[in-house]
Amino acid sequence: MSESTVAPRRGMPVWIQVLVWVGLLALLGLVAFGLRRAQQGTVQPGDTIPDFTLTLFDGYQYAGKSEVKFSELRGKVVVINFWASWCKPCEQEAAELETAWRDYQDDERVVFLGIDYTDTPTPALGYLTKFEITYPNSPDLGSRVSQLFRIKGVPETYFVDPDGKLSYVQVGPFASAAEIHSIIDPLLKP
């Protein structure tokens, strides 16, 4: 600054100009990012889901283990249901989901996963008992998985095809088990 004071009519020093423009662009970039975030909603069909690991609730197991690694489910249709015990619409679909699961229970090619969003242990376990839910369920530790899917609320259900790509997103509850069948079955075609 001090050396430029000699000039009789000084404009803004170039380095400050550069700084101002960089700052302005960074700010606009950040806002653009925020805006995109706000508008894009959940992950969309076709997106690849990053890997995550679930630690199941006590009393739940998958393939004899109490942990499920998403990447190890490649080759299967994965149905990921986000729910919470405080969520009334979740209760509407709980029985339907369980029914659908029992239909596929013996089919090696289908996995159901329940992920409990922003919930506390006691009511969550109560909910699982009340609706007699048998498919693997886990709390969303650190809200990490729900952030991966950018969920907007509960219930939301994500259908992942055998290639690990998201193929369908259901926002809100299912009306019937048949509805769930109609989404899974096409994915099972070889």
């Binding site: 009519r9 000084r10 404009g11 803004m12």
Partner: peptide, 16 residues
């Protein structure tokens, strides 16, 4: 933002 900043820089010297 861009227009305001550009104008301000353009007239900077005159605002002494």
């Amino acid at each position: 933002f861009v227009i305001s900043v550009a104008l301000l820089i353009y007239r900077w010297a005159e605002l002494k």
